[in-house]
Design a binder for these strands. Structure first.
Lengths: 95, 95
DNA sequence: TTGCAAAGTAAGCGAGCGCTTACAACTGGA
DNA sequence: TCCAGTTGTAAGCGCTCGCTTACTTTGCAA
């Protein structure tokens, strides 16, 4: 499953928890957070701590894989200066 | 790359940022956070908000995939009744 | 219907977030 | 060497986290 937003995470966590037939209390205890926290997370809370979220995924046996686009060439900001002009000017004999 | 801890995230973000030849300030602006926040994240801060972290990955073009273990069969609590015995008994001609 | 477990809501509190401003340390190039 | 760009550190502040306690709502079964 593709994770883009906190809501995605909430959905994933909730469905996985149900698949494993765990109730919020027991899962919360396993993770080391309060049940209330789980409620909020499953609702898609965007300001939760990553540390706890990662522990949650771990507790559910979910593994996260990051794919960095190889294709994306190392983009250098396009120059705002005309280096050729500058060089040409510099080459001109000073008066 | 496998993501297990906030430190993993920090490493990934930093290396990807460098690959894209972005400095902290410009990336921070792109994400909508302060440069200081980025410094902390790249150090592996465990208590940052997921929302911001996800936005960061997005800004870097990194996609996250969650793999829930198919293997793990949806465990149903083992039955306390011996259905075979019951059926067998039911089959017996009533006296 | 009554009863119970699971899930959701509400309020109050200490702790730490992420922000800004400011300065220091580390680079690489002139 | 000096200098500019990049990165790291420090302090102070408003805000919200995640926690606890307590109550309400929902779902299901007796």
């Amino acid at each position: 499953m593709r994770i883009r937003t906190p809501a995605d995470l909430g959905t994933l966590i909730r469905s996985t928890r149900k698949k494993l037939q765990l109730d919020q209390s027991t899962l919360a205890k396993k993770i080391g957070v309060s049940r209330l926290w789980l409620v909020e997370i499953e609702k898609g809370k965007p300001r939760a701590e990553i540390g706890l979220v990662l522990r949650t995924l771990d507790a559910l046996g979910i593994s996260l894989n990051a794919t960095t686009p190889e294709s994306q060439s190392p983009k250098r900001p396009e120059s705002t200066v005309d280096i050729d002009r500058i060089v040409a000017t510099a080459r001109e004999p000073r008066k």
